[in-house]
């Protein structure tokens, strides 16, 4: 069974310069973060570069991690997504990788494969709350999260006005927030 924060203690040790702890973080998380980078960047070389940048940042800013403010994995995932997103923003427009068919597959919102991977209580709550969203809200949020799309790109993809997508995302996030607060209480 996965504990809620298996990474936090290693991050705290890495912040004190413990390189062994840092290597353990890499061992425990690199396959997950590489999958995440690949899902956003869809090119091995870019995803490898983003991953390298992710761990360099983790090592350099581990002292900024605060266990009071959340689980270590959430903190690390944010760094990985930031690294992938900034790489995505730098790439030329015409190099947009992937095609319609694989854009449709990944974030279908189908909870089955996700549920298998989400065993912590945070993960269960998130699944419950995502399932309460409207299909469009959920799909927009997952497309943005997993593929790094902008709201305009989601709008193009779903063939809906960008204002509509923005409102789906905004309302989806607020409903998610309400639900997560309720679930935690």
């Amino acid at each position: 069974m996965v504990t809620d924060d298996p990474i936090g203690p290693f991050l705290e040790a890495a912040a004190k310069g413990d390189y062994g702890a840092f290597a353990e973080i890499y061992r425990l998380t690199s396959s997950k973060l590489f999958a995440l980078s690949m899902s956003i960047l869809r090119r091995n070389d870019w995803a490898e570069e983003a991953l390298q940048e992710t761990y360099t940042r983790i090592w350099r800013s581990a002292h900024r991690y605060d266990s009071e403010k959340g689980a270590g994995m959430g903190w690390i995932v944010t760094i990985a997504r930031n690294a992938a997103l900034s790489k995505l923003m730098r790439r030329p427009k015409d190099e947009f990788a992937g095609n319609e068919s694989d854009m449709l597959q990944l974030p279908s919102g189908d909870p089955t494969p996700m549920e298998a991977a989400m065993r912590s209580s945070d993960a269960r709550q998130l699944m419950t709350c995502l399932s309460e969203l409207d299909e469009e809200q959920k799909q927009s949020i997952l497309l943005i999260y997993y593929q790094g799309l902008t709201q305009r790109e989601v709008a193009d993809h779903l063939r809906r006005p960008v204002g509509t997508v923005k409102s789906w995302v905004r309302r989806g996030l607020l409903r998610l927030r309400d639900c997560l607060d309720r679930e935690t209480a």
Partner: peptide
């Protein structure tokens, strides 16, 4: 709050080991 709450999404994909050169 959001980093923690959306974090599990980042762990939900099938794992993919990076090459050792990374």
């Amino acid at each position: 709050f959001w980093e923690r709450r959306l974090g599990p999404l980042g762990e939900a994909l099938p794992e993919q080991a990076p090459p050792s050169r990374v």
